[in-house]
């Protein structure tokens, strides 16, 4: 996770929701290709003995009450918030912010 967050932080800020999602998926897949030791399974099972991480599933998109410009992607231990300006915020299931990055306009998810 540290390397994923490090590379995500170094990448150029995204300017749209789609760009931010692509950045998250590309960055995590690249890190796991290099470091996990397991090839990517395009259709990963619910439970696997392979110690490889996968980006949030696109069918788990939720609206965020009170923030119409932000969407939430639910995964097992995290909620990933993505703004229409490309801002990203990743929170643990307990609510702790583990990572945030503004969109190309300089605004963070919390400012949308």
């Amino acid at each position: 996770m540290d390397e994923f967050y490090r590379r995500l932080g170094l990448a150029p800020d995204a300017s749209t929701f789609e760009e931010a999602l692509g950045l998250i998926r590309r960055t995590l897949n690249d890190v796991e290709d290099e470091l996990s030791g397991f090839p990517m399974n395009p259709d990963p099972p619910l439970k696997s003995d392979e110690d490889r991480m996968y980006p949030p599933n696109l069918d788990q998109i939720h609206d965020v009450p009170g923030a119409p410009r932000v969407k939430r992607l639910r995964s097992r231990y995290h909620n990933t918030f993505v703004g229409e300006n490309g801002a990203i915020e990743i929170r643990s299931s307990s609510g702790t912010i583990e990572f945030f990055k503004p969109g190309a306009d300089g605004k963070t998810v919390g400012e949308l």
Partner: peptide, 10 residues
């Protein structure tokens, strides 16, 4: 819980 990462279910 707690758990970390974006892996599969245990």
């Amino acid at each position: 819980l707690p758990g970390t990462g974006f892996g599969g279910a245990d």
